[in-house]
Every structure is written in structure tokens, then in C-alpha cells.
């Protein structure tokens, strides 16, 4: 028996060592780097907290997450319910919906740019229809609000499928007899959705929400490509501090903030919002 344990540990050891070296150690040194200030510890953080850009970045990151996550969740649930009716040709729709999954945030941003740039197709269509005479500008620091909404829209386009596949997988794993029982016992469609389907989906919804919220705080590619630093976000500032200002300490401080937020969110989701019926018994 103990030989089997040894074998198991030997098989797993390389993975543990690799992750310890490439994830554990960097994480630790980010921590150290961020805390070792110029003169005393926390210097870097004090500077950070006095920087208006940081608060802007935090604000915009939170605002984007606040817009993107709920919209995505609702859209994804609706989409999953649609695809799960298994109508004729649903697998084609499934493929189309999952295309953005294969695309990087950079690609998604470029696609969005194709649509929204001054010479983009939205402007072209509107001008050809005679609805506008000059292009509408969606980008540039004068149009921050428009930029914000284009970014939100792009992220919704890009990452809704992520939520969608998790929800769909959850939906497909629901025992069909639960729903048939609801039909038999007189549930209306709305009652079936709210009293049976959504509660049973709760674990999937939770993990999708967790995933999406975490990713939302790491938002970078789309913002950087479309708005640069017009709309500062935490991950973007990390990149900017390191690459453009060559300031690894400040970059580490930003990274730490992101890590901290990640930790807090994970904690809230994992321990605060568990499904009661799953907790109290064996699944």
C-alpha cells in the first residue's frame, strides 16, 4: 500500500516542483518586491495609494467588472437555455457561439476596432444609409464614455461564451426527470426556470461567476488595444509601470493588489455563497 503511495507521489512530484518554481516562487518574490520600498517597507504602497491613476484604475476595473459580469451571466443563461432545447441545427449555433473562445483578447479587440474605428463598418453603414454625414468617433481620450462602452461591449462579446459553456455543461448534467417531474406537477415555464432549473444550476453559476469576476479584474488586452491608458485598469497599469516606466517595484505593487482582490473574491465565493443542499449531504 505504501509503495503505491510512493509511486503516486513520484508521479505528481514533477508537477508540484514545476508549479512551485514557476508560480509559487514568482508569487512570493512579487510579494517581497512590492513590500521592499525605497527606504522602508510599504513605501511603494504608500506611493501607490497617493497616485490618482491607481484609484482611477481601480475605479474603472470595478466599473467594467460591474457592467460585464452581470450582463454576461444573464446572456449566457439565456443562450444556454436556447441551445439546450436541441433544436435542429443547434450544434452549428453552438460552434458559432463558441468561436470567441478560441480568440485572444487582442484579436477580439482588433475585431471590435474593425467595427468601431472611424473608418469602421458601423460608421460606413451609417454614412451609406445617410444617417450621419461624418464618422462618429468611438475612440480617443475625448470620448472616454464611448470608449468605456465599446470596451464593455467587446468584453461581453468575447467572454460571454466562457460563461455560456460552463452554464451549458451544468444544464446538460441536470437529470431530465427533475424537469419532467416539474411538468407533471403543474409548474409553469417561469416556475420551472426559477424554482427548478436555476437552483439546480447554482453550482455552475457560482463557478462561472467566480471565473468571470477573477478574469474581469485581470482585464488588459482589450482595454490596452482599444483605449490605451485613456481608461486605466489595474492590469494595464502593471504592464505600463513595468514596460514603459521600467519600474518593477510599482508593477509588483499593482500585481499584488490584483492578487489580493483575486484572493478576496475567491474566498467570498468559496466560503460565503455555497449551496446549502449540496453542503449538507453527499452529492
Amino acid at each position: 500500500m505504501s509503495e503505491a503511495k510512493t509511486v503516486a507521489w513520484l508521479l505528481i512530484l514533477p508537477t508540484i516542483l514545476y508549479l512551485a518554481f514557476f508560480i509559487g516562487y514568482p508569487l512570493f518574490s512579487t510579494f517581497v518586491m512590492a513590500l521592499s520600498g525605497e527606504e522602508k517597507a510599504f513605501d511603494t504602497f504608500l506611493n501607490l495609494f497617493h497616485d490618482k491613476t491607481f484609484w482611477d484604475a481601480l475605479k474603472y476595473t470595478l466599473m467594467l467588472a460591474g457592467v460585464i459580469v452581470p450582463v454576461q451571466l444573464v446572456l449566457a443563461i439565456a443562450l444556454a437555455l436556447l441551445v439546450n432545447t436541441k433544436f435542429k441545427g443547434y450544434s452549428t449555433l453552438l460552434y458559432i457561439v463558441t468561436i470567441p473562445l478560441a480568440l485572444s483578447d487582442v484579436t477580439a479587440a482588433l475585431m471590435s476596432y474593425t467595427m468601431f474605428s472611424p473608418m469602421g463598418y458601423i460608421n460606413k453603414f451609417l454614412m451609406n444609409l445617410g444617417l450621419i454625414s461624418r464618422p462618429i468617433y468611438f475612440f480617443g481620450f475625448m470620448y472616454k464614455t464611448r470608449e468605456f462602452w465599446v470596451i464593455a461591449l467587446t468584453e461581453i462579446w468575447r467572454a460571454t461564451p466562457l460563461v455560456f459553456v460552463i452554464i451549458l455543461a451544468g444544464l446538460q448534467s441536470i437529470n431530465k426527470e427533475y424537469l419532467e417531474a416539474a411538468d407533471i406537477f403543474g409548474f409553469t415555464k417561469a416556475q420551472k426556470l426559477f424554482k427548478i432549473i436555476l437552483p439546480l444550476l447554482k453550482p455552475s453559476i457560482m463557478s462561472a461567476l467566480l471565473m468571470r469576476t477573477l478574469f474581469a479584474f485581470q482585464i488588459f488586452g482589450v482595454v490596452w488595444m482599444l483605449a490605451g491608458r485613456d481608461i486605466p485598469v489595474l492590469a494595464g497599469e502593471t504592464y505600463y509601470q513595468y514596460i514603459n516606466l521600467n519600474n518593477p517595484k510599482m508593477a509588483s505593487a499593482y500585481a499584488m493588489i490584483i492578487a489580493l482582490i483575486t484572493l478576496i473574491i475567491s474566498y467570498i465565493y468559496l466560503f460565503g455563497l455555497r449551496s446549502k443542499h449540496l453542503e449538507e449531504g453527499v452529492r
Binding site: E177, E180, A181, G186
Partner: peptide
């Protein structure tokens, strides 16, 4: 008629006792 208007009830093979209630 849809099932809900037939005034029937059913016991399922997997029981289909809703796990969240």
C-alpha cells in the same frame, strides 16, 4: 393537453426528488 393540465402525477425511475428542496 400538456402534462400539467391532465391532473395526473408520476413517480419516476430516478425518483426525481428535487435536491434543492
Amino acid at each position: 393537453l400538456p402534462p400539467k393540465d391532465r391532473n395526473i402525477s408520476m413517480v419516476f425511475q430516478s425518483y426525481a426528488v428535487w435536491p434543492h428542496m
